[in-house]
Structures are given as structure tokens and as C-alpha cells.
Design a protein around this nucleic acid. Structure first.
Lengths: 112, 112
DNA sequence: ATTCGCTATATTTGTTAGGATATAACGAAA
DNA sequence: TTTCGTTATATCCTAACAAATATAGCGAAT
């Protein structure tokens, strides 16, 4: 019976959430599928929820994270900007580093 | 307009949550007031919620975190064990260290 | 002009977590 | 043996949140 340490990190921009684990999952799914509705399906969340998340991301970011197009060939779609891709990559890296850091810190409790 | 990084950490013991920020707040309030009901009032949460949290803490921990007494002088009360005090102290320290670590990591995003 | 699949919203329906409330049990002290 | 303020627990109720549903609007291609 061992203790485990878990964490959730997120990034805020003037009191609004920019990125968290759920948002990063969504961005990755958009990158993979090329559309917001397909991304929502693949994550088993409603389109409404996905749209609200993405809207919030784009409103909080300093620069656009996705380009969304309505109508046209295939009805439209959504894709990550270079900035969006960089954000996702950086978030993942920070998250992994944080896990490693905390696993090490946990020893303080196990030794009690 | 700057980005900020936030985090929540918690400690689990075989799939059950042992400690998180809310539970640590509660334990500190118990330490200060000497009773679960007074602690609940001071945190503006219901007694029910406080009791459920504390029950869960004690069920997940390897050793008792509080000693609760029913009846007797003053009706009873609750107090932290030495183990409980150590857990609270260690959790706070890990949490502070995590914040500092993440603040430093955030620079990776600000430089994008 | 019509079709298509998407983005973008509003509205309605369901579900669940928590609050409010009530009450039993307890044991020391007077 | 009565009083007291707790811990401990059950039941009901409501309000916040999420899911489901519906629908408008778009623009390229045929």
C-alpha cells in the first residue's frame, strides 16, 4: 500500500483559463482530425462543450491557437496554428517535468 | 497581460484520495479549533461535508490522522495525531516547492 | 440553385453533488 | 439521572452543471 502523488496544472491569462489537460487533449484531437466536431466525437464529449473550450482558449491566448473555417469544401474545419502547436508541446513538457518533480518530493512523506 | 501557471496536487492511497488542499485546510482548522464542527463552521462548509472528508482521510491513511472523541466534557472533539501534523507540514512544503518549480518552467512558454 | 458537413448558438431536459434538516448515540460532570 | 455539545448518520430537496436536441448560417463544389 503505497502513496501516490497526482497533479493538475493549468495556465491562466488574466483570470481566464488558457490551457489545462482537457484543453490540450482537445487541441491534439483537432490536430489529428482537422475538425472540431470530429475531435469532439473522438473524445466522447459534446460538440457544445468542445466548442466552448476552444472558444475560451482562443479568447485567452495572446495569439490565435486555431484557425476555424466555416463552409466551403467539406463544410469547414479547424486546424492548429504554429503557435498552438508550440503551446501544446510546451504544456506537455511542463506537465511531464512536474510529475517527475513531484514523484521525487513524495519521498518526504513516505519517510514519515 | 501575462500568463500564470497554477496547480493542484493531491496524494492518493490505493485509488482513494488521502490529502488535497481542501483536506489540508480542514485538518489545519481542526488543529486550531479542537473540534470538527467548529472547523466546518470556520471554513463555511457543512458539517456533513467536513465529516465525509475527514472520514475519507482517516480511511485512506496508513496511520490515524486524527483522534475523534464522542461525548464527555464539552461533548467531544477532534485533534490531530503527530502523524497528522507531519502530513500537513509535508504537504504544505511539497505544494510550495511545486509552485516555485512551475513558475520557473513557465518561462518555456513565455519565450514562445 | 442545391447539396454538403461543418461552425456557431439557443433551448430544453437530465443528472448529480451538495445543502438543509433531523436525530440518535455518546460520556463526563454536576 | 439530567444536561451538554459533540460525533455520526439518514433523508429530503434544490440548484448548478452537463448532456441532448434543435436550428441557423456559411461557402466551395457540382
Amino acid at each position: 500500500m503505497e502513496y501516490k502523488i497526482k497533479s493538475r496544472i493549468w495556465i491562466e491569462s488574466n483570470e481566464n483559463v488558457l490551457l489545462g489537460e482537457g484543453r490540450v487533449h482537445l487541441l491534439k484531437a483537432i490536430q489529428k482530425t482537422g475538425s472540431l466536431s470530429k475531435a469532439a466525437k473522438s473524445l466522447h464529449i459534446s460538440y457544445k462543450k468542445a466548442w466552448q473550450l476552444l472558444d475560451s482558449v482562443n479568447k485567452s491566448a495572446k495569439k490565435p491557437v486555431t484557425i476555424n473555417s466555416i463552409g466551403g469544401k467539406g463544410g469547414g474545419g479547424a486546424e492548429l496554428t504554429d503557435y498552438g502547436k508550440s503551446l501544446v508541446k510546451a504544456f506537455d513538457e511542463i506537465n511531464r517535468n512536474c510529475w517527475a518533480f513531484l514523484d521525487n518530493e513524495l519521498k518526504k512523506i513516505e519517510s514519515i
